[in-house]
Amino acid sequence: MDKKLVIPGEFLSDDPSQADEGTYVENNRVFSSVFGIASFNNGIRVVPMAGKYIPKPGDLIVGIIKEVTYSNWIVDIRSPYDGLLHISEIPRRIENDEMSKYLKIGESIMTLVSDVDANMKVELTLNDQRLRPIKEGRIIEVTPSKVPRFIGRSGSMIAMLKNETKCNIFIGQNGRIWITGKDKGMELAIKSLLKIEKETHIPGLTDRITKFIKEEKGEKVKVKVPEKKEESIEEGIEKNIEEEKTSSGGILDELLGDEK
């Protein structure tokens, strides 16, 4: 078994060179520093079951404008630290007194962490083709440490969700998820995302979610063709496996593919 649930202080290995995130080394022995799931492939890391988002340069996140100052927007990024978006970090030039016209308090943005200094001053930017203010859709919040599970191996989970719900889903590293699409699709997407959040630690996640979505959809057509339900589940799984094989390349490109 190469994964297990560990508590802080649990002994993991005698090889300090293997130590990665969520661990610490004492007397050349590796211990877990958080309560979470330890994995032993390509180095030892422990993914915590909970915890706050700590910004890193290069993270794509969803922020909400908290305050507008003379030349900065102060952005809530679901972290102990506020994000700062400077007036020069947006795609077009605007005057200082027009900042609120561009982004008001309460509005959401899809943004990139450009720099974090030793004092945890977090600088954000919108100066990128992929980034923009969020004008439509819905945002839900999940545990930041679980974000990789929402994306799945090389984007398999998100690709499946997008395909099944016909929604556009962007997962910010800070655990905010932005969903746009038709009402019904969004509802299904949110239901599935919340199910993923609850069951991240149980094996066979992608399959279970595929089944869940099929069932949710199946309920609506049940009256007409009740026998077909089981078949569709199997089809779904096969289809999903194919997707996992074919999906490759940047996750981001996938996320934004149909928006570009």
Binding site: M1, D2, K3, K4, L5, I7, F35, I37, N41, M49, G152, R153, H201, I202, P203, G204, L205, T206, D207
Partner: peptide, 20 residues
């Protein structure tokens, strides 16, 4: 007992998660 209580919270185990 503290350890057991923490483990209990996620009682459904994670063995075989690597199949995914």
């Amino acid at each position: 007992m503290q350890k057991a209580a923490l483990m209990e919270k996620y009682s459904s185990q994670i063995e075989g998660e690597n199949n995914e």
